[in-house]
Design a protein around this nucleic acid. Structure first.
Lengths: 351, 351
DNA sequence: GATCCAGTCTGAATCGATACAGAGGAGGCG
DNA sequence: CGCCTCCTCTGTATCGATTCAGACTGGATC
């Protein structure tokens, strides 16, 4: 068993407090005694104050939690999430704080326990969809929370960093509409929990389960409403998750239909890349495709998309947690987005 | 202030132990009382047992630390590191354990403190180069450690998961040698700390600072020694860090030399991609290039490289920590590698 | 010589829980 | 009816530190 602080105190013949001070408050004791204590500690093999005990007494931990909506190991396969995380890491690093990545079990009760058991000073919640309970649990714990989207029941001291999802989506959809596309499909993840991949009939955009997907589909619909295309005339395609292959799967049937869409607007670049895969497989029919996020692969693929500052989002999220702004209004950050037109969008082919 | 377990006990009129049991050992009290306690807790706003206090008493934390040699935010920009992390996350997730990513300050004393202060049950150290002290500090703390390479002074209960770096490097170099290349450059990171990017004269491969780079360069040299090319005839290029742009910078001067190498062997795919960038800039002279790791971009770029199982490495590292094998010999895992020949290597151009 | 002060060090209280031995009561069995 | 066991619940010790008020000492100040 490793010696404790008390053991060192006994060895040197001083009080426990003094040994503690030797580590945490060097100005509270003479340099000579401090050195004597440190030497004795080294000799005894004392590894320094126990971090857990210290955290308990001090009341803070020196780590912030990061929570992902989906499985943690998925997060590392999602380029946008990785860049977000890089931003969080950068801010945490500068602040001397660690990052606790907490995996959420599929079982909600277990997930709740996992969140309750995380020893952290605050939480950064990446893209919580309908798992609003996560934020509730965190609030109950009295921990500061930053989310990447405004909540429906946002309180005054809620902190979040996001983009104007709806406006950004509308911008890219307007671009597509101006190219003349009227028979279009919208592709998103988690449109309806547990739905099979492919086309889905929804009465309206409010029926979309996932908040982010809902906002983006809403923005797409806004743009088409403006040129006279009603919601009911739009095809909604559901992907089972946010991955390239899920995008390809979801769009396959629609592309094979007698009257395929002339454009597919996806809620994420990875889904859009999947659509491009599907098109390539189908012999590259001239269908316009757009994505969302502007990940690195989007540039390579020539994908028209919406750029949002990924690292910056992470950096700001972490900063909102680590140095909370005095003014609560400064706790709501909306980042700029930009339409990036590349080669996957073009005019409607006349045929 | 949030209520404590004691407050709930007082409210219900039972002992603290009973409330504790209500949370952690439901079988130790009647269902009725347990419900009464849980209700009271909810009503008081008690957020459940404090994770830090619990960890202190129980003696374990439920989290493992992950340490990166370089800056933490760099790790997220390195595709191989990200895949490694994905593997670690997957294993941790399955085990219900969190991941504490600890940023290491540049200042060694501060870094030491950061490591000493991390509240975790074990550490997974990714690619520690000369920062051997990290492992020493962890050993002092008495924490289990898994590294991604064997240590020079490996003890019997050291755990690591790696590849046979030297043999793998030798394999790709043999391929290049068999293509006829004799005037070659070897490109690696951290060859000599603080060295300017570009060519470096080293008496032998043992002078290479970074252990992994040393092993790989050694493997390259082995293959060329076999065909009669001595170490002194090889050009060693140092990159300032492990990034695409650093690769391009490091190789620039060598390519512009009167007798440029006909092949460049890099210690990492990202460096090799940088070499390809530099070649493209120079008008694509016919120089063979190889990488190491086989990241996703390598396939796209047609890069000849050595494949090593990234996610698997992470998964195994985490598992060695989470379920330590009974047999200490099983704590040393060597993963297979494979030479992947693509289009960036070819015969020496006759000119 | 009394007063004050800065510099060192000590002791007790505290952070918020868990573990474990044991107390008390209800029911089963011979 | 007495003994034994099982089920609940309690009390105390403990995890390993930090904090803060105060004690002591030696020297400076008036």
């Amino acid at each position: 068993m490793k010696p404790t602080l008390q053991a060192v105190a006994d060895a040197v013949g001083v009080s426990r407090s003094t040994v503690s001070n030797a580590y945490s408050r060097p100005d509270q004791l003479s340099a000579a005694l401090r050195q004597r204590i440190l030497d004795a500690a080294r000799q005894l093999g004392y590894p320094g104050p126990n971090p857990t005990a210290r955290s308990l007494r001090r009341g803070y931990v020196g780590a912030i939690g990061v929570l992902f909506e989906s499985r943690l190991s998925y997060a590392f396969t999602d380029p946008f999430a990785v860049r977000f995380l890089a931003g969080v890491a950068e801010a945490a690093e500068r602040h001397g704080t660690s990052l606790l990545l907490v995996p959420l079990p599929a079982d909600e009760a277990a997930a709740r326990r996992a969140v309750e058991n995380a020893a952290v000073d605050g939480f950064c919640v990446y893209c919580v969809g309908d798992e609003g309970w996560v934020v509730d649990v965190l609030r109950e714990r009295g921990l500061p929370v930053v989310t990447t989207a405004p909540r429906d029941d946002a309180g005054p001291d809620d902190r979040y960093v996001g983009i104007d999802e709806r406006a950004a989506a509308r911008a890219v959809a307007t671009h597509v509409a101006q190219l003349g596309h009227r028979r279009v499909a919208l592709l998103g993840e988690a449109v309806r929990p547990g739905a099979a991949p492919g086309e889905l009939r929804l009465a309206g955009v409010t029926d979309v389960a996932h908040p982010t997907t809902r906002a983006r589909l809403g923005g797409f619909a806004d743009a088409f409403a403006e040129v006279g295309v009603a919601w009911s005339e739009l095809t909604v395609l559901a992907a089972t998750d946010n991955s390239r292959s899920a995008g390809a799967t979801a769009v396959a049937a629609a592309l094979a239909a007698p009257e395929p869409p002339t454009a597919v607007l996806a809620c994420a670049d990875v889904l859009a890349l999947g659509v491009l895969d599907a098109l390539a497989e189908a012999g590259r029919p001239p269908v316009s495709v757009t994505g969302f996020d502007d990940i690195a692969e989007a540039a390579t693929a020539g994908l028209t998309t919406v750029r949002q500052p990924a690292e910056e989002k992470g950096r700001i999220a972490a900063r909102l947690l680590l140095d909370p702004p005095a003014d609560p209004a400064a706790g709501h950050v909306l980042l700029p987005t930009a339409l990036v037109v590349r080669s996957t969008t073009g005019p409607v082919p006349r045929s």
